[in-house]
Design a protein around this nucleic acid. Structure first.
Length: 424
RNA sequence: GGAGGGUUAGCGUAAUUGGUAACGCACCGGUCUUGAAAACCGGCGCCUUCGGGCUUGGGGGUUCGAGUCCCCCACCCUCCGCCA
């Protein structure tokens, strides 16, 4: 949610930002809404003040056993008027808030302009794209032939867009989760969190997932609980409606969770394999920072995610998303794209964003600076998407004989295994 | 799932059976001190157009006025049942 003061004082900055994002927003009616809300609020507060004064006078008279019927009568009318005014304010409040929630975050000045992903800017590239003496297979063929991936069985259990891993394939997924968490907690200073995977509607709203992304998430039938679409949601809400002491910032959290997404509207996209699933594992990186440091922290967080790919020896590039491709709450986003020989192109494996104070304002997360509380900045990034890392390893490390070499950094987590060969 | 108890500022506790949230600890600032402690003074929830408004888990209701009375909901604790 953007700052309402910005709407009052510098609406042109919002207009300009919305134009860059190619977003349609009716600012005029919001400004009018805010204006009348403030007028009504002022009047009701004045009456409140009078009510407080007179009520005290009534109490004094009653204590002195004097008659106060006149005052009581007058206050009866004031009470009714206040009730009407407050109802009107509540109504305007809600409309205003709903309007504000429709406005995406303002892109940072450094974000490239552009309508879609074709305008994203490659920031840097790492690693050598592997050359094969044979035609490289995609992860589905590699995994199925090795007997470590069984998509048909997954379909039997749950339908399309699920996967089932076996033996070294299941172990590989678990090894990656441990490897990621150990790296981020041990070397990058993050605190490990294991949050609930089912979260309340209130929590979904706190990070801006609802109502906008309700279509993307799964909801359980019996209660107001949702399957977390990303650990970003519970992590953001850990400090919802809190005022943090300044000396606790920055906070670094990392969390492994499965992520559940309905992928509405992506029918026909990436239908083959485990690239786009209703359920996938992810290790998330999350930071609460002061406004002064958040841009530095974004660079560091992105570097933390990149480190994973470097240690695994997977070639990748870093892309700065353009204004048209930017997520709703992000002021700036770097995508990490890993090279997939099976597709002969780079594919997203991590997305690292600075949401500035956008999520914090909505979720009421502040810190005390000097005397006044101020909104923190929140950052999130994948470190990394586990399923897609499996895909990248199977495709980049495949050998002509169909086996897959395990990256050295991962071998301790695989019980010393250095190569996956055909399993029965 | 059943029964009972609870939720007041960071923590711990008050508030005349309705009269407009008090106190202690902790914390911050000041005085004093070589420095510190103690003591004393002030501050010690949020918003504010600086007039004031709001705040007792959340939301309604009754009332001139609700921490207090009524209704709904959430969460926590204890016991029983069930369960990994």
């Amino acid at each position: 949610m953007i700052d309402i003061k910005l709407l009052r004082d510098e609406p042109d900055r919002i207009r300009e930002a919305m134009a860059r994002r190619n977003a349609q927003v009716d600012l005029e009616s919001l400004i009018a809404l805010d204006q009348s809300r403030r007028e009504l609020l002022h009047e009701s507060e004045q009456l409140r003040a009078e009510q407080n004064r007179v009520s005290e006078a009534i109490a004094a008279k009653k204590r002195a056993r004097e008659n106060a019927d006149e005052e009581v009568d007058a206050m009866r009318a004031v009470r009714d008027r206040i009730k009407d005014l407050e109802e009107a304010v509540r109504d305007l409040d809600q409309k205003l808030r709903q309007g504000l929630l429709m406005i995406p975050n303002l892109p940072d000045a450094s974000v490239p302009d552009g309508a879609d992903e074709s305008c994203n800017a490659v920031v840097r590239t790492w690693g050598e794209i592997p050359e094969f003496s044979f035609e490289p297979a995609d992860h589905v063929d590699v995994g199925t032939r090795l007997g470590i991936l069984d998509l048909e069985c997954a379909a039997k259990l749950s339908g399309a867009r699920f996967s089932l891993q076996k033996g070294a394939g299941a172990r590989l997924e678990r090894a990656l989760i441990s490897f990621f968490l150990d790296l981020h907690t041990g070397e990058h200073g993050y605190t490990e969190i294991l949050p609930p995977f089912l979260i309340s509607g209130e929590t979904m709203e706190g990070s801006g997932q609802l109502p906008k992304f309700a279509e993307e998430a799964f909801k359980v039938e019996k209660r107001d609980l949702w399957l977390a679409p990303t650990a970003e949601v519970p992590l953001t809400n850990m400090h919802r409606d809190e005022i943090l002491p300044a000396d606790r910032l920055p906070l670094y959290y990392t969390a492994y969770t499965p992520c559940f997404r309905s992928e509405a509207g992506s029918h026909g996209k990436d239908t083959r394999g485990m690239l786009r699933q209703h359920q996938f594992n992810k290790v998330e990186l999350y930071k609460f920072t002061t406004p002064e440091t958040s841009w530095d922290e974004l660079e560091k967080l992105t570097a933390n995610a990149e480190r994973v790919l470097q240690l695994l020896g997977l070639p990748y590039r870093v892309v700065a998303l353009c204004t048209g491709d930017l997520g709703f709450g992000a002021a700036k986003t770097y995508d990490l794209e890993v090279w997939l020989p099976g597709q002969n192109r780079y594919r997203e494996i991590s997305s690292c964003s600075n949401c500035t104070d956008f999520q914090a304002r909505r979720a009421g997360i502040r810190y005390r600076k000097d005397k006044k509380p101020e909104y923190v900045h929140t950052l999130n990034g994948s470190g990394l998407a586990v399923g897609r890392t499996v895909v990248a390893i199977l495709e980049n490390y495949q050998q002509e004989d169909g086996s897959v070499v395990i990256p050295e950094a991962l071998r301790p987590y695989m019980g010393g295994l250095d190569r996956i060969t055909r399993q029965t």
